[in-house]
Design a protein around this nucleic acid. Structure first.
Length: 728
DNA sequence: TCTGAATAGCTTTTT
DNA sequence: GCTATTCAGA
């Protein structure tokens, strides 16, 4: 019966069997975190400590939730029902729906996506006479989101915390935005947790009910939790204190969206008497890969401290390779060639990945892989519900459920074209605001009073009539039939059928998929929640393909071979991360590098190019400081510079018709380095004030050979080659 | 209401 | 260099 326990190592077993009291499991990359979490879950059930419905299990992504559900079922040998297992947001939504009136919502509230959220913020800002060209609504929406992440309702924001943004009107915009949400009976993603937390905070009887229910709490990826998530968990855990959080402070890479590494660093303090178990045996990677990752991350401060050690007996392997290249084209060629070679040697493409810092970097590799006819897939991109046609269709459905959903009304009023333009819409808005009613009501009154004319009148009246009819159909024939009718009668399907663009057939296909998915739900409301919170793209990427993705997207995945291109100052570590968050930003970039390296099972190939085209022009790039932090003995430096020189000298760049490339003096890495090497007679000491052509004036904060860290007055902190600056 | 030209701005991303 | 958004004019 406890056979599943024998498959664990000592530390894992301890993490599984310590059932009572607060427990923090520090799980390094590849140390069997998911196995521990799922085994612990199953163990709770199998030992009779709890029924499935008495365990609260929280993840960040739907994928992680699905995986946990499947693996727990596998251990139990049967599907588990009645679980409170899901993402923070899905569980928050579930609680809110159950007690909506207590926070001033009705249970059929709408969940707005980021797009709706920004549109609403923009409307609120415009109503407050703020210049939305000077103050970008997406930035304002982001500020509000961060406030929500920190558990701050508008009332809790002190004047000191209000930003300079929006002329000090931030708080006011936030308050007005919340008022609009309430009027629309809607919540945004942040509210799912903020309001759920408010609910528990101000309704002790509700909280007590959940205390009674949840005997055990499991939390995945604890290092990624933000303040509200932490508060929500703490409220739920405070009575029984049976909370187990699993995470890795070294893999915290989401601070920019509100995650607080401090949550994990403070666990012992928050839950006195907490036990801490470290999982350090790595079963994924070879010894050189682990050594490289460990050496790199050791440069960070404020870690809880964990050392990955090889957990496999066959852990020897090839060294981590660092390849220096002339330019970004050569880098793409190098990656392409190595992939070809590996493929020829029988390695599966699905076991190779190219991990980049930023999305735009994938393009160079895509182009290269296309010319080489190597199948690939780009992971990430639009989610199912972010597609235009899906959002339109959902807006129609939302209107059926909630006639007061103004955002949905605005979205579909002129899609397909009904002759209702900006002018007519403004009229509707004014009437609605004056009478304090939803747009649909205002529209009906306006038509009755003759306030609309011509095409606009016909269009609006027609839609209102149709909506009523579809709503009757919904009650009579059920949501599947009603949706099919709606898409047909609204002319929405016809609109895409007439569209000649190459995407149109795919969009129609997606609409069919939507109706198919709809059939799996009992109610329209349940389906809308599913689409907003859960539904993902079917990965139409079956087959043996190389994966291209961002480092963020790669977290939690593993591959035999991992390519890590673009390790250059400014790209990685990313300049903006350094500008905005300084030393903290640098540490997070370093954790990202750590995540990247630890994705590799057998091979990691890191590269940097001396020249890179950024937007319009070519720029010299200096190697990332992270390269210097790798342990020399575990790394093979494989500059293809010599090869590059031979090729270039033998065949001067006739292809590159652009003169600059030919004319640029040093054409090899060595020559380029030689040019930059000659020790300057007039060395620039720390503290010097210097001038840089592009970045202006600054002060040298550190000197490393020919590299200078400079705090520029305008451009912020950067690392540049000394030959680019002069003493001021 | 719709179209084409001008213009700003450009990490990472789940829900 | 590309693209998403905004503005002027038909």
């Amino acid at each position: 019966m406890t056979e599943y326990l024998t498959r664990l190592n000592q530390a894992q077993r301890e993490a599984v069997e310590t059932l009572d009291g607060p427990l923090l499991v520090l799980a390094g990359a590849g140390t069997g975190k998911t196995r521990v979490l799922t085994t612990r879950f199953a163990h709770l059930l199998l030992t009779g400590r709890a029924y499935p419905s008495q365990v609260l299990a929280v993840t960040f992504t739907n994928k992680a939730a699905r995986e946990m559900r499947e693996r727990v079922s596998a251990i139990l040998g049967r599907p588990v029902e009645g679980l409170w297992l899901g993402t923070f947001h899905a569980l928050g939504a579930r609680m809110l729906r159950a007690h909506a009136p207590l926070v001033g919502l009705s249970p059929n509230f709408t969940i707005l996506d980021t797009d709706d959220q920004i549109r609403l913020v923009k409307q609120v800002m415009e109503a407050g006479r703020l210049d939305t060209r000077r103050w970008a609504p997406p930035a304002m929406a982001n500020i509000i989101q961060r406030w929500k992440d920190r558990g701050l309702t508008p009332e809790r924001i002190t004047a000191a915390e209000d930003t300079d943004f929006a002329a000090g009107q931030g708080r006011a915009v936030y308050a007005a935005y919340q008022a609009r949400l309430k009027a629309l009976n809607a919540v945004d993603f942040g509210d799912l947790l903020l309001q759920a937390t408010e609910l528990l905070r101000s309704n002790p009887e509700v909280l007590a009910q959940y205390h009674h229910r949840f005997r055990y709490i499991l939390v995945d990826e604890y290092q990624d939790t933000n303040v509200v998530q932490y508060l929500w968990l703490r409220l739920l855990a405070q009575a029984r204190r049976n909370i187990c959080c699993v995470g890795d402070d070294d893999q915290s890479i989401y601070s920019w969206r509100g995650a607080e590494v401090e949550n994990i660093l403070r666990f012992e303090h928050d839950f006195p008497g907490a036990k801490i178990v470290r999982l350090e045996a790595n079963y994924r990677s070879t010894a050189p890969i682990l050594a490289a990752a460990a050496a790199l991350i050791a440069h960070n401060e404020g870690r809880l401290g964990k050392t990955l050690r090889p957990g496999r007996t066959d852990a020897e392997g090839e060294p981590v390779t660092v390849v220096s290249l002339w330019d970004s084209d050569e880098e793409a060629r190098m990656v392409g060639e190595r992939i070809e070679t590996l493929r020829r040697d029988g390695h599966a493409l699905a076991e190779m990945a190219v991990l980049v810092r930023a999305g735009f970097q994938t393009r160079a590799f895509e182009e290269r892989l296309i010319t080489l006819a190597i199948p690939y897939r780009v992971v990430g991109g639009l989610r199912f519900y972010e597609r235009q046609e899906i959002r339109d269709a959902i807006a129609y459905l939302r209107l059926l459920v909630q006639p007061a959903d103004d955002l949905a009304f605005e979205r579909v009023i002129n899609v397909p074209r009904r002759g209702v333009g900006e002018v007519a819409l403004r009229g509707l808005h004014e009437a609605a605001r004056a009478q304090d009613v939803p747009l649909t009501v205002a529209a009906a009154r306006l038509i009755a009073e003759g306030g609309l004319r011509g095409k606009a009148k016909e269009g609006v009246a027609g839609l209102l009539r149709d909506l009523d009819r579809w709503r009757e159909g919904l009650a009579r024939d059920g949501h599947v039939a009603a949706t099919a009718t709606l898409l047909d009668e609204s002319g929405y399907t016809a609109m895409w059928q007439q569209d000649k663009s190459p995407e149109a057939p795919g969009r129609l296909e997606n609409l069919k998929e939507l109706v198919r998915a709809l059939a799996e739900f009992e109610t329209l409301g349940g389906f809308l929640d599913h689409v907003a919170l859960v539904m993902e793209n079917e990965e139409a990427s079956a087959g043996d393909r190389v994966s291209l993705m961002t480092l963020h997207g790669a977290k939690g995945l593993e591959f035999d071979t991992v390519f890590l291109p673009g390790w250059e100052e400014g790209v990685f570590p990313n300049q903006r991360a350094l500008d905005e968050s300084g030393a903290k930003g640098l540490e997070e970039e370093r954790r990202l590098a750590y995540v990247g390296i630890t994705r590799a099972r057998r091979r990691a190939i890191i590269s940097h190019a001396a020249h890179r085209r950024i937007y319009a022009n070519w720029q010299d790039s200096i190697p990332s400081r992270f390269l210097e932090e790798l342990p020399e003995e575990q790394v093979a430096r494989a500059g293809s510079a010599a090869l590059a020189r031979d090729q270039r000298i033998a065949a001067p760049s006739v292809f590159a018709g652009n003169a600059p490339l030919v004319a640029r003096a040093p054409r090899t890495i060595e020559a380029w380095e030689a040019r930059s090497r000659p020790a300057r007679a007039d060395a620039i000491p720390v503290g010097s004030r210097v001038f840089h052509q592009k970045f202006g004036y600054g002060t040298v904060t550190a000197v490393d050979d020919d590299r200078l860290d400079i705090a520029f007055e305008k451009a912020g902190a950067k690392r540049v080659l000394d030959r680019f600056v002069e003493k001021a």
